[in-house]
Design a protein around this nucleic acid. Structure first.
Lengths: 207, 207
DNA sequence: GCGTAACCTTACGCACGAGTAGGTATGCTC
DNA sequence: GAGCATACCTACTCGTGCGTAAGGTTACGC
């Protein structure tokens, strides 16, 4: 009985609802009816605009993933020194997750498990890993050093994994501060356990 | 038809089958029929011995989790220096994952997403985090230093996350060597990016 | 050799939720 | 203000797979 809205608007409303429901229930426990309900619309509309349940989920992943990538992209300019780039990237990342706690993190967690989406997600993570590895490679070459591609990839993978893990932690601790979390991550990633045990710590630069 | 077996044996066969099927299909796509089939038994037996699908999955998680914890437990004696403990723990962990590639890693991946099991898994991870944090705390106190509980927890969390992430990587790369992966992880965790960029690397001790 | 308890089966009920058929209202164009 | 496209609905079908009822068969004690 309420307003008839143009397609583009309704699509976004549906995606908002879908993200919310998928986050709350998980992919399988979520029902198309609940998504439709939550968007204030009936089920066939969802099918008409976004397609099957899987397609809806992929659309969610895409939108949220793109937003995240964009949030990070601008932050880490390639001409900065490595520590600065890492710091800015981390800060942007945790800032994003902090602002989309239930949206992003839970969606991301969902996608890991379910086979149809694991590939989709692996691609996204792959891009991130590539960026981090590229940053390392760049910094190493600047020092006249070189490292095997696999070593590079694995190190980047570990860093991305640690970061995702702290993102989960952040999503589960609503009171936690994204900025502080980013600083902690930076300490681990940049300095390593040995230095931390010696009492050496890293602090964010004034900017 | 074939042998009638005592309960304890059949239960293990069922769990073996369940782990295999859950790994291959994921929790939801797995059917109780397939599990029963794979165990060479009919469905009601599974219900009689292990209960509902959820209970079967939890039983799998428990068994595999316990095995993993045991594999790590003996490796890292508390009286060793921190780097040695970390190294032995990592080596044991990656050794275990390498030997149970499709079993453990995929099971673990499943459990992250589905709400009923996330708690179960969080408990397991919590124990690991506690161990790692405890190790840090111990080493710090030995140096007369002290760090806040949250800082400790978050650092441990990051390390565990990085390790899990490399475990995933290992599970997806059948040709990769667990020992070498553990060494790479040790480099990241112990030395950090700064040192690695300077060309400083960590090598496993001869033993 | 007979009861009884454990092992194991076939065959079904039933709920749930994805996806659809077919129809109604609203607004835009000319 | 007729025609037409677009937004939107109610009310179904139907597959799938969990969980179970009811009954058969082998081992084992006594």
């Amino acid at each position: 009985m309420f307003k008839r809205l143009p397609r583009a608007v309704r699509e976004q409303q549906m995606l908002d609802a879908a993200v919310k429901v998928f986050s709350r229930r998980g992919f399988h426990a979520a029902s198309m009816d609940e998504i439709a309900d939550d968007a204030g619309i009936s089920k066939p509309m969802v099918y008409a605009y976004l397609g099957t349940k899987e397609e809806v989920f992929v659309a969610c992943l895409h939108r949220e993933g793109t937003r995240m990538m964009e949030a990070i992209a601008g932050a880490a300019a390639p001409d900065l020194p490595a520590d600065e780039r890492l710091w800015r990237g981390l800060r942007a990342f945790f800032g994003f997750v902090g602002a989309h706690r239930d949206g992003w993190a839970v969606l991301y967690r969902q996608a890991r498990g379910e086979q149809p989406f694991a590939a989709e997600l692996a691609t996204m993570r792959g891009r991130l890993v590539e960026v981090v590895a590229g940053m390392f490679d760049h910094a190493l070459r600047a020092n006249g050093r070189e490292v095997g591609a696999t070593d590079l990839e694995v190190v980047a993978y570990a860093l991305v994994g640690a970061t995702e893990s702290l993102a989960d932690w952040l999503a589960d601790h609503p009171e936690a501060d994204p900025e502080k979390t980013a600083t902690r991550m930076m300490n681990v990633a940049w300095l390593g356990a040995d230095q931390l045990l010696r009492g050496i710590t890293w602090h964010p630069p004034a900017d």
